[in-house]
């Protein structure tokens, strides 16, 4: 069946029976080249679900080491991993889940200078860092290279996520013009509910699958804003901003 191994037919059986995936869709997932920026509270669940789903090549970028304070929500790591580099430790956890996936750890901080080379040629990028500069760098690089991406954030009991289809839908910079002068509120200072990060990271993986498969209505051109404490969510639509420095002049 479409060149799948016996193992793959069993491993992805629940995908293969889904009308929106089937053999054609699973092949798309297996052929995908995904970059995950940030192996933290959002990147861990997003990466684990994408690896389990058989997203064929996953690069995971993080320059940090595992700290004990991370374990409350960064579920690729255990107590024994404290002090180890996140990218490599995350990669090992992904391979353990699914040896079918080629995982590349990247121990780098993604900055404006290096982002474009990193996103070039990817099928999709998932941005889940808590670094506003990285968020804008990934946005600008993906828009320039025409790579779709999913971007999200979570703090306290609030989360937000959206997808960007470059040239088609509004980008992150269409909504938030620039990184805030004072750093955005971080989880370190403000706290975060572990499962709230898990929920947002998992929703990001859902959007990533939809885009890779070309199925459904991606959460693009709108941002989903979730208040887990109130138990509410809302979609805010955004149009491309004509003067947007990232995508305003996009071809």
């Amino acid at each position: 069946m479409m060149g799948f191994t016996e193992d793959q037919i069993h491993r992805y059986a629940r995908h293969l029976v889904l009308r929106e995936i089937g053999g054609v869709g699973q092949r798309k997932l297996l052929d995908a080249r995904v970059l995950i920026v940030g192996a933290g509270g959002l990147g861990c669940p997003a990466a684990l679900y994408l690896a389990a789903a058989g997203a064929g090549r996953i690069s995971i970028a993080d320059h940090d080491a595992v700290a004990v304070e991370n374990l409350q929500r960064q579920i690729l790591y255990g107590s024994a991993d404290v002090g180890r580099p996140k990218a490599e430790t995350a990669a090992a956890a992904l391979r353990r889940n699914n040896p079918d996936v080629i995982v590349e750890p990247l121990a780098v901080r993604v900055t404006a200078a290096g982002a474009r080379a990193l996103v070039k040629g990817r099928s999709l990028v998932v941005e889940g860092t808590d670094d506003p500069e990285t968020k804008f760098a990934v946005n600008d690089a993906c828009v320039a290279e025409g790579v779709p991406f999913v971007i999200g954030g979570v703090v306290r009991w609030s989360g937000q996520l959206m997808a960007v289809l470059p040239g088609k839908t509004a980008c992150y910079r269409c909504v938030f013009e620039n990184p805030p002068v004072t750093p955005a509120e971080t989880c370190e200072a403000a706290g975060v509910l572990g499962p709230a990060a898990g929920a947002v990271g998992t929703l990001m993986a859902v959007e990533a699958c939809k885009i890779l498969l070309g199925k459904g209505e991606p959460l693009a051109g709108r941002m989903r804003v979730i208040d887990f404490l109130a138990g509410t969510s809302r979609d805010i639509a955004w149009k491309r901003r004509p003067g947007c420095p990232a995508c305003g002049a996009a071809k």
């Binding site: 933290g40 990147g43 940090d64 808590d130 954030g153 805030p180 989880c187 990271g201």
Partner: peptide, 12 residues
Amino acid sequence: VAFLPPVSGGAE
């Protein structure tokens, strides 16, 4: 009218 701050978070 909704005011929406950029929310980061995730990695640290």
